[in-house]
Design a protein around this nucleic acid. Structure first.
Lengths: 357, 357
DNA sequence: GTCTAAATCTGTATCGTTACAGCTACAGTT
DNA sequence: AACTGTAGCTGTAACGATACAGATTTAGAC
């Protein structure tokens, strides 16, 4: 299938994809010169560069990725590590789009490296690092002492995390400020006169569990409220599981009159549950949640929502890894999204601006 | 960063990744022999093969993808073409998971090739085909006379489509039977005594527009109902746009008493709209929709839903491309998902089994 | 006129793999 | 003894790109 007939080093007909050799032949220059001219090397005359670049453009030259990769080790690939077990993965597509948006116009491709929760998540990272199948990695579901992060730091492999770690700014990251989110949420409920609040938090091993519970606790203390524990259930669990757990919660004698939900989908399950228990939103209870699509707000007019923009997260993460690959200082490669409470467009009365607590 | 110090051809310390050369050195064989032994070539003795394979396993040998790709042209990559403009892309992540599931255990990687609706979708296909950046392509949003399909057929490039084309079985595809879906939906509404039905269909240029409208029309005729036109709006549009269009619809004097929605998210918008118009689900009107997560059913207990499994679609699509790459006959590479009406778990009375019309 | 330096260009080796065309050794045939 | 066949192994040359160490030309210095 390979190995042509008898062309020695003279590209004959307009056959397959042009290579450096093609351009070298057309311009009468050496392959090396062409290579260097195309990357604007200083030891090539401006004239030659123009000529080579013109011809390259004309014939539609594109460097062969395998060739570059073999010779230089540069893959021009960013790997997105995905846990394929998560139930409510809608937002992953938004991250993907954000990443691809940031990578548009660069030579980078996005490759997906999925892992199942049954596997060790480390395997996926190790695979990419060991086989050098990418120049950088983006991970999510970050943990405070994330083994993947330690591994990549140790191997000096470029990466960015969605969510922070206990290592602070030692590596690039993007995060949504879940502490502020939870605090805003509690304040909103307090303003509605709610006293007994429950929090549907993420899985405790994840970094943002701490952020969210801290913000929640602060809000509770600040407003003089009490917390109703809701600790047998997390936002990433299957939707029916959450609903069932919420039904349990609402059947307890000390049921909450306000709930803060860490994700849009889980909020839907919670609302579903409370209605099945004969309560109704805005009456016996209020719910505040995050949303990443307007769907959540449409679910029930009485829901209070805070927008979390995952496309933005994707863009930030991509730029962060690229930044590290390019060797920019790590201190430039962090970003934190600050949440804002969105007024319910159809139901809730407008809040007076800038009045907290 | 490359070009080691002075090892000639003797791999010295336990440095970087083992290559064929490493194994050749360790076994005392030639590089060619090692290569052939690892792929079970017939001209290598069984003894040698065992020995080589053992050593390869011991040192954790993995072929260098760039080397293979450069020499053979085989990329071991499947490219997933994505339109990044779509609004409700939740299901894309399910397709991705399905694909990655099917590719687990194979040497294939998934690479994403996004395109914006503003670009020509052909550009993305052409890019992959011309630069040979993948061994196969999966596309969605298939059209009856899809230019991408014609192009890939012409270039004999392996691919599979999510949705069918007018070319019938000339290429691998997977599809959900939207005709049956619409027909089931209409029958369900007819059984509830609904007479005036509207259909929220996909964008007319897409293949499944025809399927869905045909099924709908058949159902209407079969049950002796009338169609209320709802043609200024499609399922892929922004969620608020759909809601506004639905509000228009419900304000018309001849408003429908039943709606069939081509997607879960659009159904939420429609229900939102009808409630804003003072109607209520199950009373003045019934709605049937597809759902790909249990969320939709949770949205309103009165909704009738049909499950569409996008993970399955992903698996089928991946297997279809792989099949074509392996040269299996195209006739084996088609699959159609048959929809089933799911009874509402909480609200709707159980239907007597096997009673259509 | 010789020498040096700078500016420009080029050949060779190499990354890891595989296709191809041998090569070697030994057994069997005549 | 000479020949053929075959099983089993191997060297060489690519694939396309780039690092590196020259090569060539020209201008300028003395």
């Amino acid at each position: 299938m390979n190995d042509r007939t008898a062309d020695e080093n003279v590209p004959a007909g307009a056959e397959s994809r042009p290579t450096l050799k093609t351009i070298a032949f057309m311009t009468g220059l050496g392959v090396t010169t062409v290579s260097r001219a195309l990357k604007n090397a200083p030891d090539i005359s401006a004239d030659t560069k123009r000529r080579v670049q013109l011809v390259a453009k004309q014939v539609g030259y594109r460097p062969n990725r395998a060739g570059v990769r073999l010779r230089t080790g540069k893959t021009n690939v960013i790997s997105l590590l995905l846990n394929t077990d998560e139930q409510l993965m809608g937002f992953i597509s938004d991250i993907i789009y954000g990443v691809s948006r940031a990578l548009r116009g660069t030579p980078y491709h996005i490759i997906l490296t999925p892992y199942s929760g049954r596997d060790d998540p480390m395997d996926a990272v190790r695979y990419v690092v060991e086989t050098q199948s990418a120049d950088g990695i983006i991970i999510s579901r970050t943990e405070p002492q994330d083994a993947r992060v330690l591994y990549m730091l140790e191997h000096k492999f470029p990466f960015a995390t969605h969510g922070r770690t206990d290592l602070g700014n030692a590596h690039p990251w993007h995060d949504f400020d879940n502490e502020v989110f939870a605090q805003l949420a509690v304040r909103r409920l307090a303003r509605n006169g709610r006293k007994h609040l429950a929090l549907l938090a993420p899985e405790p091993k994840l970094s943002y569990y701490r952020h969210m519970t801290d913000g929640f606790a602060d809000g509770i203390a600040e407003c003089g409220l009490t917390e109703i524990p809701f600790h047998n259930c997390w936002v990433d669990e299957p939707i029916d599981r959450i609903r069932d757990a919420a039904i349990e919660l609402f059947k307890r004698p000390n049921r909450p009159d306000g709930v803060v939900c860490g994700s849009g989908a889980s909020a839907m399950a919670v609302v579903n549950a409370l209605e099945m228990c004969g309560m109704s939103l805005g009456k016996e209870i209020d719910v505040v949640t995050k949303q990443s699509t307007p769907l959540v707000q449409m679910f029930r007019p009485g829901l209070y929502v805070v927008e979390e923009d995952f496309r933005l997260a994707g863009r930030e993460l991509a730029n962060a890894v690229l930044g590290q690959i390019e060797g920019r200082p790590v201190s430039d490669l962090h970003s934190l999204s600050v949440p804002e409470l969105v007024r319910d467009p159809t139901f809730a009365p407008a809040d007076p601006p800038h009045k907290g607590g």
